[in-house]
Simulated scan of single mutants.
Amino acid sequence: MKYNFPVIKTTHPKEKPDPDTLRFGQIFTDHMFMMEYSPEQGWHNGRIQPYAPLQLDPAAAVFHYAQEMFEGLKAYKSKDGRVLLFRPDMNARRTTNTNERMCIPHIDEELFVEAIKAVVGVDREWIPSKKGTSLYVRPFIIADEPFLGVRPADHFLFMIILSPVGPYYEGGLAPTKIYVENEFVRATPGGTGAAKIGGNYAASLKSQEKAHESGYEQVLWLDGVERKYVEEIGTSNAFFKIGDEVVTAPLTGTILPGITRDSVINLLKQWGMKVSERRMTIDEVFEAGKSGKLVEMFATGTAAVISPVGELSWKGEKVTINNGEIGELSQKLYDELYGLQIGEVEDKLGWTVEV
């Protein structure tokens, strides 16, 4: 192994949670990864240590100018006891792109993956094995240099924390109801829409609150210029099956290049299906819904994998999709991807990485 990280084991191990009552992102494991950056030493002092609160200066740049980034992936335990990561190289590549946009120092992509493997290996006993559960892996980088002034920081922390999780949506694969946002926008060309940063999510909270108040689980964002082209669903990429064509928004800099999105596109092409990465108006979606051509709609993302959509609401109009039930394609994609992730479907593409 090119990288070797010292391990400081906790002296106060926590009680592991009941896998039957796991929710998403509320419990954390015994250990975390920590590494520092300075201009003089670059990235250095990588180690695994007990999970604990951070001590940061109140003037740390992350608090005042939001210079930070994060990633998300999962570790799964197969029936034969192997621990598997799903396409961590894609998370490393996306980290490189986000860091470039956010003026965060480049981190070697191999180091990024090896750090994940190392900390997951230490806390592998925290990975639940019940169907639908996993160990969520959250790598993130923050600017911890104390100063008040708008410039890129010189000192950063790279950390990885782990959380045993159940399904992202409590209903599991039950179709969700989506509210189409036409007041606020998530991203515009030239902005940070393609970067994995907290600011994108903070800006979405108001719309999500509106959606919840109206009885909807998530928000479908429209483009920030003309307010008519469909883009993302909250924390996920959006797919529409219209007739025999599966459509998703193109990567033009305003949506996140999802790893599950890329995996779905690859699988659909392998299955001989027509897949289009093109701009599509919300009018086209609703017209397809009313005429019965909108066969299925689903969201893709690390947290939920595949999340079918049963209803859309836009400007007081509603359209029901597939009678509010999970579609055949959504189920097939979920079964294939989840099967790959837990090692029950043969990995012919080399997407899984054993810890």
Score class of each variant (00 low, 15 high):
Lys210Pro: 09
Ile326Cys: 10
Glu245Trp: 05
Gln208Cys: 12
Ile321Met: 07
Lys241Trp: 11
Ala304Ile: 03
Leu251Met: 02
Trp221Gly: 02
Gln208Ala: 11
Trp271Ser: 06
Gly198Met: 08
Glu311Thr: 06
Gly253Met: 02
Leu251Trp: 00
Gln270Ala: 00
Ile255Asp: 02
Asp244Leu: 07
Ala303Asn: 11
Ser236Ala: 15
Asp262Asn: 12
Asn237Glu: 13
Ser207Asn: 14
Ser276Ala: 12
Leu329Tyr: 05
Leu268Met: 03
Ile326Phe: 12
Gly224Lys: 13
Trp271Met: 11
Gln218Lys: 03
Val219Leu: 02
Gly289Leu: 06
Val319Pro: 03
Trp271Arg: 05
Ser276Lys: 10
Lys315Glu: 15
Ser313Tyr: 11
Phe240Met: 00
Tyr229Gln: 10
Ile265Phe: 01
Ile321Glu: 02
Trp271Pro: 02
Ala203Tyr: 05
Ala288Pro: 03
Ser307Gly: 09
Trp314Asp: 03
Lys293Phe: 10
Lys315Ile: 06
Asn322His: 11
Ser313Ile: 06
Thr252Met: 15
Leu294Lys: 07
Tyr201Gly: 07
Asn200Thr: 08
Val264Phe: 05
Lys290Ile: 08
Ala249Gly: 07
Lys332Gly: 00
Gly234Trp: 02
Lys274Val: 03
Gly253Pro: 07
Glu217Gly: 07
Thr281Gln: 12
Asp283His: 13
Gly199Arg: 09
Asp335Gln: 09
Asp223Arg: 03
Ser207Phe: 05
Lys315Phe: 06
Ala203Ser: 15
Ser307Tyr: 06
Leu294Met: 06
Gly224Asn: 12
Glu277Phe: 08
Val275Arg: 09
Leu294Glu: 13
Ser214His: 14
Glu245Gln: 12
Lys315Tyr: 06
Val225Gly: 13
Ser214Tyr: 09
Leu268Glu: 01
Ala303Tyr: 09
Ala303Asp: 12
Arg278Val: 13
Pro189Trp: 13
Ala211Arg: 00
Ala211Tyr: 03
Tyr201Leu: 13
Gly243Val: 04
Arg279Ile: 10
Gly324Gln: 13
Thr192Arg: 08
Ile282Phe: 10
Thr281Asp: 07
Glu277Thr: 03
Glu325Tyr: 00
